[in-house]
Amino acid sequence: MAIKRGVSLYSYQQEEWFGRWTWRDQLREVALNLDGADGIEIISEATIPQYPYPSEAFIDEFNTEMARWGLQATTLDAFPDPLQFRRDHVMNDAEMAERLKIDLRLAKKLGMKNIRVLGNTIDSVKLALPLAEELDITISQEIHFPSPIKRDPNSQRYNKIMDILEYIEKTGTKHYGFQPDFGVFRTAPSDVYLGYYFRMAGYEEYAEHVKAVMEAFKCMSYEDLVEWAKKTYPKVFNGGWADGELRPASAAPEELKLIAPYIYCVHGKFFHMMEMPDRPGEYEDLAVDSEGAIRVLKEIGYEGYIDSEYEGQRSQQDRGEAYLASEIEEVRRHQKMLKRLIEEA
């Protein structure tokens, strides 16, 4: 057994938004063009028509298409939205659990083995856990940037991941675990995001500046980097969203060992696949340590799915049609990289 490859349909969000590709087209792409990838992760609200109460016809059709292409349902991504009952009250834990239970039942109908949660409280997950056990679906806390994994003894910051780990180990539950996102292992700011923030600040030519920021990230402390960036590019780094690009990795791949038995799915987050200078036809993302993460996943014997999760498209939607990224090509390149890293010794 080895690590398996899948795709989160999140990766094709732009094709879906423009109405160019349906979920059927996306399934076909994964089955036919990704050299052995067979996992499918879906976004509850986006993929399921008439969410949260789809027709039986959709359920049948989805399961039929999955079987037709020999695909495996990996994960359903769920969301809580605490302000859903606006003008009345903030959603409480019991209501958050009820919403999760709706998603658990949907996941079961669609053959999913796992649900990804992110902002759901631990208490709300505990309330939904008996149903997850009954349906035999795991609930996985996503470990998403800027979340740490290990507890920092010098920090007062609340560490949800370690609290969940303690709960799992105390109760022995087989249905609560983790879904790490490779975005926590960042090695540089993403060039496509930096490009967007430079454009927003009025720059027309910025390729050299993007390169300079990526280089500075590698050789400066975070504090020095912030100071340098604000001084050098005051219109770009001024307390807004661009500053987030300067933040360091929030975890190291080795930390995956702390949660090894409880990883039920993995997000292969990426932003921009570039051809490797010394290996024509092979690709890498300079912003994410996919190599380190996969090396550790192999060491711990992980045999589940890594689902490609492309997120570079949204930083390239400000200049009209001609500048849109190709999600299809990006995912193909990412899958080629995953295959290489999984198969390499």
Binding site: L83, G119, T121
Partner: peptide
């Protein structure tokens, strides 16, 4: 839009005053 991933300190305020 007020879509969100989890609780925030401003939630109570935003129920009536987004």
């Amino acid at each position: 839009t007020l879509d969100g991933y989890g609780y925030n300190a401003h939630d109570e305020e935003w129920v009536t005053n987004p």
